[in-house]
């Protein structure tokens, strides 16, 4: 089985705004780093001109952006999130995204070769929100062997 993840965030400002330029301008670089990581399988690519998926807005609130990706193992995703340059941007999340009260990040297992759709991702995220952690949909705390999120996760604002 492979691991899929969906991560949504409420952008504080529209994409062209200079206040989030640092985020938007770096998307391409960080996505490229992800693609070169061992264990990378797939990521959601839209048509935003930055190599990301900023144009895909599956929620009624147009400020809610989304990213999705598939990895061979959860450790691969973990390495990318906290042990690469991605970390430098991860820690600045609060500068660009509003704090969300509901779950904004969710993982689930997919059969090898399966590419999840955005709808599938939002349904899993909703499942996590309503039912809490389960093998159907879970966050980092559900995985006992994955530890980096405890020490590296960004503070309150994230």
């Amino acid at each position: 089985m492979h691991l899929a993840e969906i991560n949504i965030g409420q952008l504080k400002y529209p994409v062209g705004d200079p206040r989030i330029a640092d985020f938007v301008d770096n998307l391409g670089k960080i996505n490229a780093v992800a693609e070169r990581m061992p264990g990378f399988v797939w990521r959601l690519v839209g048509d935003d001109g930055h190599g990301g998926a900023l144009d895909i807005r599956p929620y009624p609130d147009p400020a809610t952006a989304v990213n999705m990706s598939v990895w061979e193992r959860v450790e691969d995703l973990e390495q990318f999130v906290w042990n690469t340059v991605h970390k430098k941007f991860y820690t600045r999340k609060a500068e660009w995204f509003d704090v969300m009260s509901a779950h904004h990040f969710c993982m689930w297992y997919v059969p090898e070769g399966h590419i999840p759709t955005v709808d599938e991702g939002t349904v899993r995220l909703e499942h996590l929100e309503t039912h809490g952690n389960s093998d159907h949909a879970f966050d980092w705390s559900h995985l006992e062997h994955v530890k980096l999120w405890q020490s590296q996760r960004c503070g309150q604002a994230g």
């Binding site: 301008d25 770096n26 670089k29 070169r36 390495q79 690469t84």
Partner: peptide, 22 residues
Amino acid sequence: NSLNELRSAMYQEFPHLARLDQ
């Protein structure tokens, strides 16, 4: 044209440089 683009190219050529603190 920017540090960002420089790093993109550099990471592509030398991927281990993107793995901070590792």
